[in-house]
Simulated scan of single mutants.
Amino acid sequence: MLTGKLVRLRALETSDAESLYRWIHDPEVGQWMNNSHPRSLDQVRKRCEERTVNTYSHVVLGIESVTSGELIGVIDLRDAEPETGRAELDIYIGEKDHWNGGYGTEAMRLMCRYGFNVMRLHLIALWVVADNERARHVYRKVGFVEDGRHRECFRGSDGKYYDMYLMSLLEPELVD
């Protein structure tokens, strides 16, 4: 487990399925995410039960509040390759009452430190919808910089197309 003042990053458990199910069906939580077709609670449970173990190429961790022990989100490093020292990061805070207060920022810092120190990554990248200013603010606060813009590549739940930014972070750029 990776622990900070606000959050603890830990492996996901089968018992987390109910929270994941609730979040993936909440339009506000999923507004800026690529969601698949609707899934039943049983399907989400089965996916949790069959989840592969974390490996170098894909590390998925739950974000837990240190004070309450409640699962509040998910973060992962995926597509990591030791040959390139690069991985992509995804994060979401599913519990809306934790959207402010530094939970996402601390989870990002913990996961990036893990990527640089343990996985020996050189670069961590992510994609973010241009209109998702809350997320972009957190990413910039951690040290990510905008590398480029991909035009109209994300289709929102409102049917509109949005631009996305590619952002990246090198180890010396991580802001504590």
Rank of each mutant, 00 (worst) to 15 (best):
R86D: 05
G94C: 09
C112S: 14
L77D: 08
Y114C: 06
A80E: 14
E81Q: 04
D97T: 01
E106L: 02
W127S: 14
G102A: 06
G94M: 06
G85K: 10
L126P: 00
T105C: 09
A80R: 13
L77P: 10
G101H: 04
E81D: 15
R78I: 04
R109Y: 01
R78G: 15
L110M: 08
G115T: 02
M108A: 09
R113K: 08
E83H: 13
L77F: 10
G104M: 12
N100A: 11
I91S: 04
A125I: 12
G101W: 05
M111L: 13
I124S: 01
N117L: 04
I91M: 00
Y103M: 08
F116Q: 10
C112N: 15
I91Q: 04
H98S: 02
L121W: 06
M108T: 15
D97E: 01
P82M: 08
A107S: 12
D90N: 14
W127K: 14
A107K: 14
Y92P: 00
I124A: 01
R109M: 09
H98Q: 03
E81C: 05
R78P: 10
G102C: 07
A107T: 09
K96A: 10
T105D: 08
L121P: 00
A87Y: 10
G115A: 03
T105M: 09
G102R: 04
E81W: 06
K96R: 15
R120W: 07
L121E: 03
L121D: 06
N100T: 13
H122F: 03
L123T: 15
W99S: 03
M108D: 11
V118C: 03
A87I: 13
E106Q: 11
E81Y: 09
R120I: 00
G101P: 07
G101K: 06
F116E: 01
E106H: 11
F116S: 02
R78E: 10
D79A: 11
D97Q: 04
K96C: 06
I124G: 05
P82E: 11
N100H: 15
T84I: 14
G101T: 05
L110A: 00
L123P: 00
I91L: 07
M111H: 01
K96Q: 14
R109E: 11
T105A: 02
P82Y: 06
A80P: 09
G101Q: 09
T105F: 04
L110H: 11
R120T: 14
G101R: 07
T105L: 14
R109A: 08
Y103I: 11
L123H: 12
I124M: 00
P82H: 08
R78K: 15
E83Y: 11
A107R: 13
R86W: 03
F116G: 07
V118Q: 03
H122N: 13
A80K: 12
L89V: 13
L110R: 05
R86L: 10
D79Y: 15
Y92H: 14
A87Q: 07
A107V: 10
M111F: 03
L110Y: 10
R120Y: 07
P82R: 15
A107M: 09
L89D: 02
H122E: 11
L89A: 14
H98A: 04
E95F: 04
G115E: 05
Y92Q: 05
D97F: 02
Y92C: 03
L110N: 08
M119N: 02
E106N: 12
M119G: 01
C112E: 13
T105R: 13
I124H: 01
E95C: 12
K96N: 07
R86Q: 03
L123E: 09
